[in-house]
């Protein structure tokens, strides 16, 4: 198991530009941070970008501030969440509004396994309330990652019907999740 408690003097030296220590911290910690971010943004490109930005901002912050204490990974997750929020604000300024809801920010950066299980159950619960047809389309398009054309072939519909079906299915999902709040 990896140890995510990183000594204050190690962090300070890394923040001052010690390449070896920066490499060590990056190699030790990239994966849990990346997984956390992927869980939020659900695509590799964005998760990779924000992982890098988080390391840079964290170490930059530590050049002038005290080490965050024991939970360095938790500290980085908070910075990562701030970056996601900042991205949202920037997009909004550019006139491409994205609802902050889309990135599913919580007020805490820690995501424990029970939380993940609870979320999973809630999503699966919502899926179970959809029609069989809608479930199949979401399963193929989003969970299994098939294209519209492949999904159309698999379920025996036209591509336009698949697009309409997935739209309605997601409307249904959103409504169910709204109602369960």
């Amino acid at each position: 198991m990896q140890d995510f408690v990183t000594a204050a003097d190690t962090l300070k030296s890394a923040a001052d530009g010690d390449s070896k220590l920066i490499e060590q911290i990056c190699l030790d910690m990239w994966e849990p941070l990346y997984r956390f971010l992927y869980w939020k943004v659900q695509n590799r490109e964005e998760a990779e970008d924000i992982t890098q930005e988080t390391f840079v901002k964290t170490l930059t912050y530590l050049q002038e501030h005290q080490s965050p204490g024991d939970n360095f990974l938790g500290f980085m997750k908070i910075i990562a969440l701030n970056i996601i929020r900042d991205r949202w604000r920037q997009n909004k300024r550019r006139g491409v509004p994205i609802n902050i809801e889309a990135v599913s920010l919580e007020e805490t950066a820690g995501v424990d396994p029970q939380t993940l299980i609870a979320q999973r159950l809630q999503i699966e619960n919502a899926l179970a309330k959809l029609s069989e047809d809608q479930r199949a389309v979401l399963d193929l398009r989003i969970v299994k990652g098939y294209s519209v054309a492949e999904t159309a072939r698999l379920v025996g519909k036209t591509e336009a019907a698949v697009r309409t079906s997935q739209y309605r299915a997601l409307q249904g999902m959103a409504q169910i999740l709204d109602d369960s709040d």
Binding site: K40, Q42, V103, S104, I123, I142, L170, Q171, M173
Partner: peptide, 25 residues
């Protein structure tokens, strides 16, 4: 991306459903 709150909500639902799959490393 989304230009209406309705669409933004659906995009968020996409991400939630997608969280059922394993992350791509």
């Amino acid at each position: 991306s989304a230009d209406t709150p309705e669409l933004a909500k659906l995009l968020a639902a996409v991400r939630l459903v997608r969280s059922l799959r394993e992350p791509v490393l």
